[in-house]
Amino acid sequence: MGDALARAMWERYEPVHAIVYFAPESRQAAADLGLRGFWMSYFALRAAPLGPVAAPVVTASFHVFHPDRVARALPDAWQYTTPADALAARLAAMDAAMRRLYGADAVASAAMAEAADLAWEAALAADTADRVLGAANQALDRPDRPHLRLWQALTTLREHRGDGHVAVLVAHGLGPVEAMALKAAAGESDATLLRESRKWDLTAWQEAENALRQRGLLAGDGSLTDAGAALHAEVEARTDAAAALPWRTLGAASAARLADLLEPLARTVLGAGLVPSGNPVGLTGGLWESSQPSSG
């Protein structure tokens, strides 16, 4: 148990968490707050658990974004709203989006309540020392409505895993652009989408690729060498290991039950096309592939 289970759970909770980035309800909620454009909304809603922090704090916590991308959104966002109002808005957006995606019956079902309680138990067990985003989300109040409790618990678990992933990248000497270049070379995400969405120019990307080549991780054609593939696998394995405690604490049987409850929710999100192909998160596993519409 443990590491493999952490990977399997991530594949199931990441799509549910990702509703907040791609649902039109989130964009509308942010616009209603006065936030301007996708990126100001993204950074304000995701960073809101941290409080009204400055751009360098968010840049460090999110790891892969160019400082200029963050600085265009923060702290300006806090002139239009407050972190407390942003948190309320994102929960309201998730309420509307989950009701639309899953239907009123599913949202009010016993299965949703069971999933919420299991996920909340796992989130409370997350070890948050040196995990800023995980800790900030874990400290938020417990939502009364089960579907919102589920979403917030999964968000805590997602940010907990992300904090651990950043620590692994740093330990392996992989800076933001090098980490993304390695991910793209492994086929997890589209390189152009990663570079442009995180606002790095082509020169910075090429410098990162050259640095990976000098380490023997990237071949001349941009593919991973054997050493690069091994390092990528090591990073993913250590990320899984760092994310395993909540699931060990929850126990194998309860974690398996939660996985069963989450799978149809994840498939609904993926089947709706809400999460774009080539997404920066790197959802490329069997759950993702089997949920995509046939091209035939």
Rank of each mutant, 00 (worst) to 15 (best):
residue 32 D to P: 02
residue 224 L to E: 05
residue 88 A to D: 14
residue 192 T to L: 11
residue 86 A to Q: 08
residue 122 A to M: 08
residue 261 L to T: 02
residue 279 N to L: 04
residue 55 A to G: 01
residue 235 V to F: 00
residue 206 Q to L: 15
residue 23 A to S: 08
residue 166 V to K: 06
residue 118 L to C: 09
residue 259 A to G: 01
residue 126 A to W: 05
residue 46 R to T: 13
residue 270 L to G: 04
residue 72 R to V: 11
residue 146 P to A: 15
residue 73 A to L: 03
residue 238 R to F: 04
residue 193 L to R: 10
residue 242 A to W: 01
residue 41 S to P: 00
residue 254 S to L: 07
residue 226 D to V: 11
residue 6 A to M: 10
residue 263 E to Y: 01
residue 243 A to M: 06
residue 47 A to F: 00
residue 185 A to N: 01
residue 291 S to Y: 02
residue 5 L to D: 13
residue 223 S to D: 15
residue 156 T to Y: 00
residue 110 A to V: 12
residue 20 V to N: 07
residue 55 A to V: 02
residue 204 A to Y: 05
residue 170 V to H: 05
residue 143 P to R: 03
residue 281 V to F: 06
residue 222 G to Y: 06
residue 260 D to G: 13
residue 128 T to M: 13
residue 125 A to T: 09
residue 42 Y to C: 01
residue 123 A to T: 07
residue 41 S to N: 05
residue 262 L to E: 01
residue 294 S to F: 01
residue 242 A to R: 03
residue 73 A to T: 08
residue 81 T to D: 10
residue 49 P to S: 09
residue 16 V to C: 09
residue 285 G to R: 05
residue 8 A to N: 08
residue 171 A to S: 12
residue 296 G to V: 13
residue 48 A to M: 03
residue 121 E to R: 14
residue 270 L to H: 03
residue 142 R to N: 11
residue 181 A to R: 13
residue 166 V to G: 04
residue 67 P to F: 13
residue 270 L to A: 08
residue 226 D to I: 09
residue 4 A to D: 15
residue 120 W to F: 11
residue 136 A to D: 15
residue 56 P to Y: 00
residue 75 P to E: 14
residue 200 W to I: 11
